[in-house]
Design a protein around this nucleic acid. Structure first.
Lengths: 218, 218
DNA sequence: ACCTGAACACCGTTCAAGT
DNA sequence: ACCTGAACACCGTTCAAGT
């Protein structure tokens, strides 16, 4: 299992090969089928192993929003570090033990924050969808521009393409070029989480309890 | 190109094979490489073909939020109908002409709705991430439980699994079982979009002007 | 300029045969 | 009970050779 994760981290999902794994374990490819039914089971097991570690480290002694934010960020970063887990988690988000754990974790915080019960489901769903979606996006972006290009080179390439768009047809994209170049991925991600939380009625009100006086300030 | 889309719709991304496409076109596999560089270029072209059709049909004579909602839903449904486009769109969302079109479309509406300029980028990003994430999720869910099972059978299976979780460890999941069983995918999706819009400061105010559209009859 | 199809270097998976 | 590795049915991609 551990060496499977090594292979995955080294060369992505198609870097994990029954033959490669077998030779690395000094055995034959057929052997592996005695311990695992097929490749997707192998991937599922590897994914759970990687993510459970991270989730067990999560605390919930902060405010509900901060707990959600921190859990979300952990998952986001885990997908960034192990890009192959993203699609795997999405594949059966409602069945895998790992994702059930995530649902429960976030759900409890929403309840604590007083989200009305008929809105809770929509809210967890939206959050989980966003977390996995953003994670995947991020992981894919990193992998697509793999031409040994640094992050700034990559952003330059995108900026260049946006600038070449017709001004008349794409005024908005032209406005965004600078912002895009300056953006920070984590910050961007957390802004998205905050929007969903705000939309669910979780304002910074709870933060006021912890000392920030912003209760009724729009 | 058209027959490539046929193959993709029929059997997903790995249903499109150079050999299968070649025989369907009554030619050899090598021939295709004269017209297309590789498989990913083929997929990109197919994706653009499918989505551009849909986007060109979009209007923007409604309120900003409704325009965003309707565009979002169109994309969501397109991914549902052609599950293979989802990952493809995510792969280079900042480069593909199709996605630039989407960014521009949504961005313009946000500007129209008065979202402050320093929040616009975060907001489009969040919306696009959510749309693609939800679409992919939805498409994957449909494909995973492919055992000729109807939607209700599928939901039953998930419900059953949630009920088997330990009550003490998973109180939230137990609360959600019924809601999950009754949920509607589109409604759920739009609720997510609305949360992000609300979080960006686009409330239902504009909708009130038009006399309250009825969306949730249960 | 465009087509052909054999060939190369891979896959996941199976299975008779071993220990 | 567990391992072995040849074999099967596939892939994407290339390339000398044709028209």
């Amino acid at each position: 299992m551990a060496t499977a994760i090594e292979l995955l981290d080294a060369a992505g999902e198609h870097g994990l090969t029954f033959r490669a794994l077998a030779t690395k374990l000094a055995t034959g490819p057929g052997t592996l089928y005695w311990h695992v039914a097929n490749k997707s089971e192998l991937l599922a097991a590897a994914t759970d192993a990687v993510l459970m570690d991270i989730l067990n480290g999560e605390r919930s002694d902060e405010s509900p929003e901060d707990t959600v934010r921190s859990a979300a960020l952990s998952i986001f970063n885990a997908i960034d570090a192990h890009p192959w887990v993203g699609p795997q988690l999405s594949r059966n988000s409602w069945q895998s033990p790992t994702m059930l754990h995530v649902f429960e974790l976030i759900g409890q915080q929403l309840q604590r924050a007083g989200v009305p019960s008929d809105a809770q489901f929509a809210c967890v769903t939206a959050l989980v969808t966003f977390i996995l979606g953003a994670g995947n996006q991020n992981a894919l972006n990193a992998r697509v521009h793999t031409g040994s290009s640094t992050r700034t080179e990559m952003l330059d390439a995108v900026a260049h393409e946006w600038e070449e768009l017709d001004q008349a047809d794409y005024p908005f994209m032209h406005d965004m070029v600078q912002t895009m170049r300056d953006h920070d991925d984590e910050e961007q991600f957390l802004a998205g989480i905050d929007m969903i939380l705000a939309g669910a009625g979780i304002t910074k009100a709870t933060a006021a309890k912890r000392g920030k006086r912003v209760k009724n300030q729009k």
